[in-house]
Design a protein around this nucleic acid. Structure first.
Lengths: 320, 320
DNA sequence: TTACACCATAGATAATCATCTATGACTATA
DNA sequence: TATAGTCATAGATGATTATCTATGGTGTAA
């Protein structure tokens, strides 16, 4: 058999001829003329190298080889069809894979979005990458993921960012600390305290530093700790105060307490970040839609919803 | 996906590109130029409606969709390949089906050929049809079988016949009958006996009638019985004498005995009969070859072997 | 025996395919 | 920064394909 020349079209036509038992009938069904179908059969026969049908009592019936070929056709065509359905589902985003890179703090909230999304889309497979800002920037540079969440989007022309969720930064101290109930507490009053800070380059640190600078305050004692979790534990054990995302604290508030500091919480927001030129996997697109749908309702983030809607719109226009 | 336009050639090329990870390498392997392969990919991509490969570190790697497509390709190609192998095997005659129509008497010998053939060719499926001469002629007229065994081939221009096995007709009587040990026994001596005969039209009957006619003998008492087996039993129970194929007697000799009649056994032969215009299934051809191979050795039928060899030769030249 | 239904073949044509050569862009390496 | 290797695109061409209309053969059913 000359497999090279075999076409799905031929198999389709052939299968229909076997089913109807008539060349003319197939021609009508497929909106072709009878000679066209005759010739397709002839060509298929040449490809196979063996008679595949014969005339019998005014019906066209497959030969022994023809029957085997018919089964093959059914098999191949249905497999192609399954693939076609997979493609549709993939394009609808209901199936497939995407990867999302999260900056550390975001790992405390994203599960609240990814979880329900995963429930609703069991066929979608999400890879979550987590790292500090620098690590994520590296991944971003190397195009390693489809979607990122940053507090401060990388400044890159090829980037689209949508701030979707506020990330309030609060000052926390150990549980039942002495400032907890003071009104009009200011940073001025705390500047002698030791502050446990994330590394420079982390968004939390950057935001806090900027605020301190603009407020003209300099801290006396600081210690650098590279993980939100470690900082939280250190605060709980009385090593000092810290600035953390309120989400970090909300996630497991044991042993720490937010201080009612004036000017706080500092406002900051997480952004979805995608590359302009990268074709977003439909599943990732679907995730963004999903998020857009729940932001206002479940997170009271009307602004975020708008930003994501805008992002989706842009993606739509850029797509294909 | 535009399944209509999908070609096995495209899948072959694509699969190779995925395997090698290089368009140039595939071009060389398939004796094409690099742009040709590039364009094939492009076309496949258009058919699928989705990017299927991307460049990554000087390698061509499939996208997510591409991977699914690759699996599909493998699957489809290997199925086509299996079919191709089936075709080869079918053409070699080692696989497939044929039907053979036997005239009654032949059923006593043909198993000795069909049995070993079936053993040697377990993938070949044989349908054996059995009937009296008239029934077989009807089947023959209606082209119902691929191959026939007749004692007297139908006289038809469209027929090829090869006498392959002698079918000696003998006169039998009950065991230990009074003629058994007489020398120079002639039909003349027996003509007062009752003869149990097959129906007119049966080959055995026809041969015997012809012999009687040429010998100028008329039987006094006859009875017609339509089955060799029934005749054998009737003879055994003393109802009369009969003319039967020696093979019938040899098959189950209980209760009957061959008479040493002058001029007997009558010579007759079985013929393989095929229609000229009918394309013989390879399996049937293989059966004939098989028979040709054993005739001289196992049946001492040198003439038969030659006749079958001649038949095979003719089939060869007429084939395709 | 005449119609009719069905299929095959011939001949024509526009589209598409399979290829090639030439060339340009990009990337990794010497 | 040359250089070599890998792809993509453009343009050309002969072969093949998908189709059609027209016509002729064959067998079945009035």
């Amino acid at each position: 058999m000359k497999v090279r020349q075999l076409t799905f079209r031929l198999l389709q036509v052939y299968a229909d001829v076997v089913r109807t038992g008539s060349i003319t009938a197939t021609a009508n069904r497929l909106h072709l003329t009878q000679p066209t179908v005759s010739q397709q059969l002839k060509r298929l026969r040449e490809i196979v190298g063996e008679p595949i049908v014969r005339q019998e009592d005014s019906r066209v019936v497959p030969t022994e080889v023809g029957q085997a070929l018919y089964q093959l056709s059914q098999d191949l065509l249905s497999r192609a069809d399954v693939f076609s359905q997979y493609l549709d589902e993939y394009n609808r985003g209901g199936r497939g894979h995407f990867s999302i890179g999260l900056v550390n703090t975001a790992q405390y909230v994203l599960p609240r979005l990814l979880g329900p999304f995963g429930q609703a889309n069991p066929q979608v497979d999400v890879t979550v990458e987590i790292g500090n800002r620098q690590q994520m920037l590296n991944r971003f540079e190397r195009h390693e993921d489809d979607l990122y969440v940053f507090s401060h989007p990388p400044s890159d022309d090829a980037v689209m960012a949508a701030p979707f969720l506020s990330n309030p930064l609060v000052v926390v101290g150990p549980e039942n600390n002495r400032w907890a109930n003071i009104n009009d507490l200011t940073m001025e009053a705390l500047k002698e305290e030791r502050f446990l800070l994330r590394e420079p380059g982390s968004a939390t640190r950057h935001t806090f530093d900027a605020w301190l600078y603009s407020a003209g305050i300099e801290l006396h004692s600081t210690q650098q700790i590279a993980s939100n979790e470690a900082i939280r534990l250190a605060v709980a054990s009385g090593m000092g105060l810290a600035v953390l995302s309120r989400h970090v604290v909300a996630d497991s508030p044991k042993g720490v307490q937010e201080l009612p500091l004036q000017g706080f919480p500092l406002k900051s927001r997480w952004h979805f970040v995608v590359r302009r030129e990268r074709r977003l996997p439909p599943a990732a697109y679907r995730f963004l839609s999903f998020v857009q749908g729940v932001l206002a309702l479940e997170f009271n983030e009307t602004e975020g919803e708008l930003a994501v809607a805008e992002l989706l719109r842009t993606l739509d226009t850029e797509r294909r």
